[in-house]
Design a protein around this nucleic acid. Structure first.
Length: 422
RNA sequence: GUGGGUGUAGCUCAGUUGGUUAGAGCGCCAGGUUGUGGCCCUGGAGGCCGAGGGUUCGAGCCCCUUCACUCACCCCA
């Protein structure tokens, strides 16, 4: 029979990798706690309408990338393609805005988009998401940007670049958009076919196009930053003031746009050159009108998403993700297995990570080989000699030293094992 | 959805103008050591050469089809 294969664009996370994931996740949770966030875990499936309203009908994500289906009772459901909409739904539905003036929430989990897979892009992928509701002041924009920037540095990423921009609000964006469209229409001939199409759909994206002729054509294009209303302008200025005060390096990229419709004012992106074409490790921004748009109170919001797989693939080599046990128990023969069984498990219960051999017939040589490969530094050997004397031998694999202990003297054995070396 | 690349052992890959029994390294198993790992030596297991069809006396190699993976576009984390 042919084995069943995994779904295209989905990945099995194997043990070597999952150790890295734990490392990242633990660090992230620590960071979030320090910055006053708490975890929320909305389901990974929502009513399709939520995403249509939240992300925007015209976006590619909604138009052609969602895993949407009707369940047995005819409800139209979708596997979440991003986290923000679901978090906002939960925020509204559970009335979190009535409990506290400001909510700082994070969530870590899988997202689903039916795109053609490539380097750094999968149909099931994971994100670390953060959202803050209820703060309109730019100080929070700065806080969030600094937090995510420092977090990525903390887990060990290097040569990242941070870009920020302001996309304006519903007041100033339309006039900019109008001006931009007029500009692009005039240059239409020199733009690539994709961009010619974009003029009508998402004119801001033209500024971000990779085709050289398009980049050349848009050097003189009007910039959002020069169209900002006084409110947005002040917001953007103050944000920079705060970031400068903390002192991280960034650049302003007036041509950066975000993919989803809901962003207003601040937008930012953290990229690297080591990811192939998918160079964004983190993207985020402010969405002051989204909560209201989804039926909630008029509460401003800001958030970001980190691509988990992308982050992990950038992690430097490190022994920080080492998952080795501290101890390998090697009993020779059936009697030794019986004698060490209780000890083995009480070592585990005392907080030590121990592995053992289950086959009573394997040789000491093989067990030591397995112990070596397991990464355990200490090995407890129990064979005929030890059984006669009611002893065990502990071997330090790094130094080769060996030492005997009375089998009954668990306290001493555990203490030595906890030391991790002889 | 569109375009390119690649499919040979568990993994990374050789494989001559089409020629007999398809190879290497790593990994795995066993032995060299009756109870001592790594290093070294010896041996072993492991392949429908992605699948289907075609050309040919003969196909891993050539042709067609198909599937999978991969990279890029679109778009995005």
């Amino acid at each position: 029979m042919d084995p069943i294969k995994l779904v295209k664009g989905f990945k099995d996370l194997l043990p070597e990798e999952s150790a890295k994931w734990w490392f990242v996740e633990l660090r992230a949770r620590k960071f979030f706690k320090n910055f006053g966030f708490s975890e929320i875990r909305p389901p990974i499936m929502e009513r399709t309408e939520l995403f249509q309203r939240g992300i925007g009908e015209g976006t590619d994500v909604v138009e052609k990338e969602m895993y949407t289906f009707t369940d047995r009772s005819g409800e139209n459901l979708t596997l979440r393609p991003e986290a923000t909409a679901g978090v906002i739904r939960a925020y509204i539905e559970n009335g979190l805005f009535t409990r506290e003036a400001v909510s700082k929430l994070y969530t870590i989990g899988p997202m689903f988009r039916r795109e053609r897979p490539q380097k750094g892009r999968f149909r099931q992928f994971h994100q670390i998401n953060a959202e803050v509701f209820g703060v309109a002041a730019p100080i929070i924009d700065a806080e969030i940007i600094i937090m995510v920037n420092e977090f990525l540095r903390d887990v060990g990423l290097e040569s990242l670049s941070l870009e920020i921009n302001s996309l304006g609000c519903s007041e100033c964006r339309p006039s900019f958009k109008q001006e931009l469209i007029a500009f692009l229409e005039a240059k239409k001939e020199t733009l690539c076919p994709d961009c010619q199409r974009r003029i009508g759909i998402n004119p801001l994206r033209v500024l971000d196009c990779k085709v050289r002729t398009c980049q050349e054509a848009t050097v003189q294009a009007p910039l959002v930053t020069s169209f900002l209303c006084t409110g947005c302008h002040a917001h953007f200025d103050e944000l920079q003031k705060y970031i400068n005060r903390f002192g991280i390096t960034y650049s302003i990229n007036p041509k950066m746009v975000r993919g989803l419709d809901y962003y207003t004012k601040t937008a930012f992106e953290i990229t690297t050159t080591h990811l192939g074409a998918q160079n964004a490790v983190c993207g985020g921004g402010r969405y002051d009108e989204l909560v209201k748009q989804l039926g909630g109170p008029d509460v401003p919001g800001i958030g970001f998403a980190i691509g988990f797989e992308r982050l992990v693939s950038l992690l430097p080599m490190s022994n920080l993700y080492d998952n080795s046990p501290t101890l390998f128990v090697a009993p020779l023969g059936a009697t030794a297995h019986e004698k060490t069984f209780a000890l083995l498990n009480s070592l585990r219960l005392s907080g030590l990570s121990c592995v053992s051999e289950y086959n009573a017939n394997v040789s000491l040589k093989t067990m030591l080989k397995r112990a070596d490969r397991s990464g355990a530094r200490l090995v407890i050997i129990v064979g005929e000699d030890e059984l006669l004397k009611e002893e065990i031998t502990i071997k330090d694999m790094q130094t080769g030293k060996q030492k005997s202990f009375l089998l009954s003297d668990w306290g001493k054995i555990i203490a030595t094992a906890k030391q991790g070396e002889l």
